[in-house]
C-alpha cells in the first residue's frame, strides 16, 4: 500500500473567476479506500472530475499510474451521482451493466457472450440478477446505485472513483456496497470516494482527504480524522 496510484500536483480549477480548487496536492495510495470529505462547495466533485479530465484545470497536473495521457483513464471505473444520467432512457439493468465492458471493446466491436457472463456475475455480486430485464426507471434509489457499482465491477478496472455512492439509499444497499468495496480491496482495487456522512468515515475508510478548495489534511485515517481537522474544513466555509 505504498505506491501512489494517482497524484495531483498543484491543481487550480476555476469556474469563470471563482476558484473551485486552489493549489491542491494529493496522492491516492494504491489499494486504499480513500474518502474525500468536505463541506458543500468544497470542490469534491470538481476534484474527481478534474482527475478524469472531464474539467480542464487552470493549472496543475494529474498523474494516473505515472501517465498523463487520456488512455490512462481506462484504468478508472467511474460511478457517477445518481442524478447525472437520464433514468427514463430506454434500457435495461443488464444493458447498463454491459456498458462496463465497452472499454474493452473499443470502437465498433459489440459485446459478446463472455461479456454478458461477466455482466451477470457483477449483477449477482450486487444481488440484482433478478432485476436484469427491468427498465431502469422502475428502480429505487438504492437499486440504481447497485446497478452503477455492478457496471464498475463489470469494467474490471483498477481504480474506482465514486461520487457520493451512499447518498439517498437504503441501509441494506449501503451495507452491501461497503461489503463489496472491502472485498474488492482484497482483490487489489483502489477506491476514491466522495463521502458526505461524517459519522461513518472512520468505519468505512482507511484513508481520507479532508478538503475545502485545497487539502486541509490527507493520509491514514487514524492520523487525519481529528476534530481539529474537520472543524478547520467546515469552519472556514462559515467564515468565508
Amino acid at each position: 500500500m505504498d505506491k501512489d496510484i494517482i497524484k495531483v500536483n498543484d491543481l487550480i480549477v476555476a469556474y469563470d473567476d471563482e476558484p473551485a480548487i486552489w493549489h491542491l496536492n494529493m496522492a491516492l495510495k494504491e489499494n486504499s479506500i480513500t474518502a474525500i470529505v468536505g463541506p458543500n462547495g468544497a470542490g469534491k466533485s470538481t476534484l474527481i472530475k478534474s482527475i478524469m479530465q472531464l474539467i480542464k484545470p487552470v493549472s496543475g497536473e494529474v498523474w494516473i499510474n505515472g501517465s498523463k495521457s487520456r488512455k490512462a483513464l481506462k484504468e478508472i471505473a467511474y460511478v457517477p451521482q445518481k442524478g447525472e444520467v437520464n433514468w427514463d432512457f430506454p434500457t435495461t439493468v443488464l444493458d447498463v451493466v454491459m456498458m462496463g465492458r465497452y472499454v474493452h471493446k473499443g470502437w465498433l466491436k459489440r459485446p459478446n457472450k463472455k461479456d454478458r457472463e461477466i455482466a451477470m456475475s457483477a449483477l449477482r455480486v450486487m444481488k440484482m440478477e433478478a432485476f436484469r430485464n427491468r427498465q431502469i426507471s422502475e428502480l429505487s434509489g438504492g437499486q440504481r446505485q447497485r446497478v452503477f457499482l455492478a457496471r464498475a465491477i463489470c469494467q474490471n478496472a483498477g481504480i474506482y472513483i465514486m461520487d457520493e455512492p451512499l447518498q439517498g439509499i437504503d441501509i441494506t444497499t449501503e451495507k452491501l456496497i461497503i461489503k463489496t468495496i472491502k472485498s474488492l480491496q482484497q482483490e487489489g482495487k483502489t477506491f476514491l470516494i466522495v463521502h458526505h456522512n461524517l459519522d461513518t468515515v472512520e468505519e468505512y475508510f482507511d484513508h481520507a482527504v479532508i478538503m475545502n478548495k485545497s487539502v486541509i489534511a490527507a493520509g491514514d485515517i487514524q492520523d487525519v480524522w481529528t476534530k481539529e481537522n474537520i472543524d478547520k474544513a467546515y469552519m472556514e466555509m462559515g467564515a468565508g
Binding site: 472531464l54 488512455k71 467511474y78 444520467v85 465497452y102
Partner: peptide
C-alpha cells in the same frame, strides 16, 4: 447508446 445515456462515463472509458 452509451454516449446518449451517460456521456461522462462514455468519455472516461475512451469514447
Amino acid at each position: 447508446k452509451v454516449s446518449s445515456f451517460d456521456p461522462k462515463f462514455a468519455y472516461v472509458i475512451g469514447f
